[in-house]
Design a protein around this nucleic acid. Structure first.
Length: 428
RNA sequence: UGCUCGGUAGCUCAAUUGGCAGAGCGGGUGGCUGUUAACCACUAGGUCGUGGGUUCGAGUCCCACCCGAGCAGCCA
């Protein structure tokens, strides 16, 4: 039996596998708090009800002892987790030979991150991982339902996808290659083969960003489909986010409780998400007293301010072309603007989606590749997509860790990955 | 990369004007028959980030460096 199923076994003799997370004793009675991968419960050991040697042993178990326990499952209001097992016998699998280093009381981030391999066992951290797992599952479910194929893109790439950001250089049989920062360009090739595709994998950024929203390695899901216009891109990203959020609210209530996540702001999220042009957002920021000029990109204080205007994520569309990537299509109504969209999460969690319509004109792309100083020979295959059977298309990317951080209410994205990679932290 | 703050026991932190290295939690031992981050008693536990300097004397003051955190910049 797993602990999460204990309510179905009330009154039964049960056997569980578990780890010890805490213990208390009143001399003739011991209370053992235990966990398994599914949840938590208490084992009660009463002197006289078990062998004296076993009773003594239970009083001296070390934190993180792994063992099997047999006993009677009962409902118990006085037990912290609502149920307890009246212990009859245990079978120890392994006992720690040193004191478990992670205290139950709060510790600092430096210590906990250096102990990440053990920190993951604590209630909040495992709750985040269960929610992350649910989010990944519901993302794949959403795209399956929408008729997308999962076609993953390479991580070793010969040159910059965008040319804008710093990439990690890797020695590849004496040749320099880079870790991908986006599946974008390959995704376009896949979309022109299969119509609706998505890739979902890790991407890498070598920027020296030291903030609560940045990791150097993170996961991104990137759908790309033909005949995508800017409205359908906003629509699809909205529907994806809503699908994911509903799944977590429905199936991970207990984990959100463990995290003490206030779920009211999550329940307040409603479709349709508000849509605001970049031009409008600049006016709004100016009204609020921000010193922002038309044509500049946002910093995080600006994103946070914009997110205050709605309970739901906000879609900002039609950015100045010069701050967006070379492949972004210009707005035919105003060529200074590009048909790009960012989705900004509520509660100051920042940009979780970025996407847009892709430029089709081969001359425009050649011109932009030149302007961005990109090696044009590396992009011939990409231009082939416009030479043969070109079709309007577009898509977006959603950052997994930021989405997890938002839904879980985390202070920092580092807790949304099992082993986060940051500028100054690569171990364990 | 810049600004700000910090580094003392396994963890979280205190140490007044420069004057004996401390507490709580955790660990160990003992006590307690319903504990809830239990409680009570006893106990073990220290390269005060590293190196230099000032001083009779430095955890404390000065210099350099290392490490971390927060914020900003950078950033589909």
């Amino acid at each position: 039996m797993r602990i999460s199923d204990i309510s179905k076994h009330e009154g039964d003799k049960v056997s569980i596998f578990c780890w010890l997370i805490g213990k208390r004793s009143s001399g003739q009675i011991h209370f053992l708090q235990v966990r398994d991968g599914s949840g938590y419960c208490q084992l009660t050991v009463v002197k006289g009800e078990v062998d004296d040697v076993l009773f003594e042993k239970c009083g001296h178990l070390a934190i993180e002892t792994a063992f099997r326990a047999q006993g009677l499952a009962v409902r118990q209001e006085k037990a912290k987790f609502g149920y307890e097992i009246l212990l009859k016998n245990i079978e120890i699998i392994s006992e720690p030979d040193k004191e478990y280093p992670i205290p139950r009381k709060p510790s600092g981030p430096d210590f906990l991150l250096s102990m990440r391999h053990l920190w993951l066992r604590s209630p909040k951290q495992s709750a985040v991982m269960r929610i992350r797992s649910k989010i990944i599952e519901s993302i794949r479910e959403f795209f399956k339902k929408e008729g997308f194929y999962c076609v993953d893109t390479p991580i070793f790439t010969p040159s910059a996808c965008e040319g804008t950001t710093t990439l990690f250089k890797v020695d590849y049989f004496d040749e320099n290659v880079f870790l991908s920062q986006s599946g974008q360009l390959y995704n376009e090739a896949n979309a022109l083969a299969l119509e609706k595709v998505y890739c979902f994998g890790p991407v890498f950024r070598a920027e020296k960003s030291k903030t609560r929203r940045h990791l150097t390695e993170f996961w991104q899901v990137e759908p790309e489909w033909i005949f995508a216009d800017i409205d359908s891109i906003m629509e699809t990203s909205q529907n994806l986010i809503m699908h994911v959020l509903s799944a977590v609210l429905e199936e991970n209530r207990n984990d959100l409780d463990i995290l003490e996540r206030d779920i009211k702001p999550l329940e307040a999220v409603k479709t349709p998400f508000p849509r605001m042009s970049y031009n409008k957002s600049v006016e709004l920021l100016k009204e609020k007293g921000f010193e922002i000029e038309w044509g500049s990109d946002y910093g995080s204080p600006e994103e946070t301010e914009i997110s205050k205007n709605s309970d739901s994520p906000i879609c900002i569309h039609r950015f100045p072309a010069h701050i967006k990537a070379f492949y972004m299509k210009s707005d035919p109504v105003d060529p200074k603007l590009s048909l790009g969209v960012d989705v900004i999460a509520p509660e100051g969690y920042g940009e979780i989606v970025g996407g847009g319509v892709r430029e089709e004109g081969i001359e425009i792309l050649e011109q932009r590749i030149k302007e961005h100083n990109l090696p044009k020979e590396d992009f011939q295959w990409y231009l082939d997509l416009r030479r043969y059977g070109s079709v309007p298309h577009g898509g977006f990317g959603l950052g997994l860790e930021r989405t997890v951080a938002w839904i879980c209410g985390l202070q920092h994205v580092r807790e949304s990955a099992a082993f986060p990679r940051m500028m100054d932290r690569i171990k364990p």
